[in-house]
């Protein structure tokens, strides 16, 4: 029994899952409305889907020993580009392609800054956070862009507002992405190389892996997942605002850290990120249902991050104890 317990605690995402269930139980006691299907899928899951989607790419970068502060700007930028292409009268496919390319561009610039110019990831992506937000404002002169109400515009809107068996489209995309990236991270050589890069970069290089290439791929992936989140967010909102997703990087990174992704690299799981983002979603929903003012959310989120960090320390100690 004790052995089973310690096995459970050692599953990297067990802590966050327990936290998620505990907080969900608490919220359901506060409000019976919480556990209704409509609230769970239509409010909670939809709300955290953007953070989780961008969080997957963020987690990959962090597991590889980096950091991407530009995800919020990449979300806003790619959503805006997609809306502009639609507004120019083009069909859905080129709009999506352009949006994704915009996200990939942000990632490409981040990757270049980190690998070729050897900038610290924090500095490099802090710079692109500002640069791409500025570009987003600049190209539309601060205006909102609303996709036209033609076939393409309607199809675009359906990406944000549509649902399949009550499951909102962004939630479906989130689960699909989680599955694909989980397989990539756990069942391909690439995934192992990502963990190796974050765990011991010098060894990874000496073992002959191309770490420049790996880092480029990771930052581009992060830009791409941010773009997916940003496009869905824009589709949901029905209009692209130049300040869309501003500040989201904090939620995205918080979700990853709560989910057990290590800031020092080499550790983290995608289920953890999903549960971490879900925990933030439940907390936010609980605050609304409890009738508390929105600003309490920041305080509670901060406390949850602190608790997650403490739990992580505890978990690592336990692992060492067990090995000794």
């Amino acid at each position: 029994m004790r052995r089973l317990l310690s096995e459970i605690v050692l599953v990297p995402w067990a802590g966050v899952l327990i936290g998620l269930l505990a907080v969900a139980t608490l919220v359901s006691l506060i409000s019976p409305y919480f556990l209704t299907l409509g609230n769970i899928l239509g409010n909670v899951a939809l709300y955290f889907s953007w953070f989780a989607i961008a969080g997957f790419g963020e987690a990959l970068v962090m597991i590889g020993g980096g950091l991407d502060l530009s995800v919020g700007s990449a979300m806003g930028f790619s959503g805006m580009i997609a809306a502009l292409v639609l507004a120019a009268g083009l069909p859905l496919a080129p709009a999506l392609a352009a949006g994704l390319a915009a996200g990939a561009l942000v990632g490409f610039v981040n990757g270049l800054a980190v690998t070729r110019f050897r900038l610290n990831p924090f500095i490099a992506t802090l710079a692109t956070l500002g640069i791409f937000r500025g570009i987003t404002y600049g190209i539309v002169q601060g205006q909102a862009i609303t996709p036209p109400s033609n076939t393409a515009g309607a199809a675009f809107a359906a990406l944000g507002t549509g649902a399949l068996a009550h499951v909102p489209a962004p939630v479906i995309v989130m689960l699909g992405l989680a599955l694909v990236l989980f397989i990539a991270l756990n069942h391909t050589p690439f995934g192992r190389h990502v963990y190796a890069l974050g765990g011991n970069e010098a060894a990874t290089r000496l073992l002959g892996l191309d770490i420049t290439h790996l880092k480029m791929v990771l930052y581009i992936l992060s830009g791409l997942t941010a773009a997916v989140g940003g496009i869905l967010l824009t589709a949901r909102a029905g209009t692209a605002l130049p300040d869309a997703a501003q500040g989201y990087e904090l939620q995205v990174i918080a979700g990853a850290i709560i989910g057990g992704v290590s800031l020092t690299g080499g550790q983290g799981t995608l289920p953890g990120v999903l549960f971490g983002a879900a925990l933030l979603g439940v907390i936010s929903n609980g605050i609304v249902l409890a009738g508390l003012a929105g600003y309490w959310q920041q305080l509670i989120t901060g406390l949850v991050i602190a608790a997650a960090a403490a739990l992580d320390v505890l978990r690592q100690r336990l692992a060492y104890l067990r090995a000794a």
Binding site: R192, H193, Y195, G199, N200, A203, L206, L207, L209, Q267
Partner: peptide
């Protein structure tokens, strides 16, 4: 510089 601490023995042996 030899090993990656968070990977298991098998993953370290076959890394790359």
């Amino acid at each position: 510089l030899a090993v990656v601490p968070w990977l298991d023995v098998e993953a370290n042996l076959f890394l790359g």
